[in-house]
Amino acid sequence: MPFLPKIGIIACSGEGCSGGNISRAAALKVLHELRPHKTLTICLPLFLAGDSGERGFAEIFPTITIDGCSKMCAARGTARYSSEPAVKINIEDYAGDMCLDDTERWTINHSTDIVNRIAEDVARHVDRLRKELEEGLI
């Protein structure tokens, strides 16, 4: 069986607003629940703090970024310090501007459905990317 790389999941995880926490929760759900053996992650700031090993992460593993707001820090940071993400998810496309509301900055209270929808979409992208890798399309 040929080597099939895992898919990198990178969330912005920003503490500045609820969107960051939702991105983090969705990423953790994919990593630990939906696709635990097909995905892996790296702390986004590690691209900056780390060495060439960390910066080569997105050159080895196709990545899916999950951003909590339209500033798209995870997508831009990954592209800048590693390589262009294969998929860029913006939570605003699912739920509008989550940064207008501070109530879920630290804990998920009423956005469990949004977290689940995003996580399921990310899981579908994981399956698609791995299939494309298997078929040599990417």
Binding site: G14, E15, G16, L44, F47, G77
Partner: peptide, 11 residues
């Protein structure tokens, strides 16, 4: 106060 860490990297 706090600020998103990734924003420090990209802003």
């Amino acid at each position: 106060e706090t600020v998103c860490l990734p924003l420090i990297m990209t802003d």
